[in-house]
């Protein structure tokens, strides 16, 4: 009787240990398993940002991205960024290289050491495997926006090639709606693939640029993807397209925004 009880109890303990305890037990690289404290990260960051910037004339942003498989460099970035004053950080896509669950977790465990909130945008590499599902669970919707200090910050998925240029990515109808209205004076648009890149749907490029121009509220459009810093006006329409480089280049940008003015500073670390 006693022996049977002990045996049953130990089997029970073993099963509980196997099922819950040990993180070594992976079910699949593409599993979509995100701990509670790593969910809805963008929404949480937005609340913190709104509290941080309240009443400020000038907002300071750090632009970086393409952290994919550059963990050591991202750690160094965090050390460097923590030395600079900024209201928040934008991680402009390609968080991961292979879209696997572990990679999202690794990057967040480095980025959470920042002494300021960060927002993440989806990149083409993040859409590999089940990366889209992991991103949604971890960071939230692929297209999102928030308003603070008369500024609207708009983030969207522009990884058209990942959807075989199906005409729905980027979602220009959504973007048009986001840019309409008078609840804000200025808008900043941020996405991974810049419209002038080959991976952006060529049939939508000019229409996209026109939407930004027509709104009259956009001064800067922020991107990643090319692994090369650029700061240009490709459509000669007064809108500056700023592309941050990949982490292995050990460089990021500090963007200051006030009214319809801005300033970009390059930081090497």
């Amino acid at each position: 009787m006693w022996r049977r009880f002990v045996r049953r109890k130990s089997i029970h303990t073993i099963i509980i240990f196997i099922l819950s305890g040990c993180s070594l037990f992976e079910y699949h690289p593409y599993e979509v398993i995100v701990p509670d404290d790593e969910q809805n990260l963008n929404a949480t960051s937005i609340q913190t940002i709104q509290a941080r910037v309240a009443g400020k004339d000038t907002m300071t942003l750090i632009l970086m991205g393409d952290t994919q498989r550059f963990y050591d460099d991202v750690e160094a970035f965090v050390s460097s960024a923590n030395q600079h004053t900024a209201d928040f950080v934008i991680l402009n896509g390609d968080i991961t290289d292979f879209g696997i669950n572990d990679e999202f977790h690794w990057i967040h465990s480095i980025m959470k050491k920042l002494n300021k909130p960060y927002l993440a945008v989806i990149g083409n590499h993040d859409l590999s495997g089940n990366g889209e599902l992991v991103f949604e669970k971890m960071y939230g919707p692929l297209n999102y926006s928030f308003i603070t200090n008369d500024f609207k910050f708009i983030f969207l998925n522009t990884n058209s090639r990942e959807y075989n240029f199906n005409g729905h990515v980027p979602d220009t109808t959504w973007l048009k709606n986001e840019l309409a209205g008078d609840s804000f004076k200025h808008a900043v648009v941020s996405s991974h693939v810049p419209p002038f890149d080959n991976d952006f749907d060529p049939a939508m490029e000019l229409a996209y640029a026109r939407i930004l121009k027509k709104s009259t509220k956009v001064a800067v459009s922020l991107h990643g993807h090319t692994h090369k810093y650029s700061n240009t006006q490709p459509y000669e329409d007064g809108i500056q397209y700023i592309v941050s480089t990949s982490m292995n280049e050990r460089m990021y940008l500090i963007l200051k925004l006030w009214g319809d003015k801005y300033n970009v500073e390059e930081i090497y670390y």
């Binding site: 690289p29 550059f70 963990y71 050591d72 750690e75 290289d97 696997i100 690794w106």
Partner: peptide, 11 residues
């Protein structure tokens, strides 16, 4: 995961 580790033995 192996190639990720090989290039990031620091982190």
């Amino acid at each position: 995961k192996l190639v990720s580790y090989a290039q990031n033995t620091g982190y």
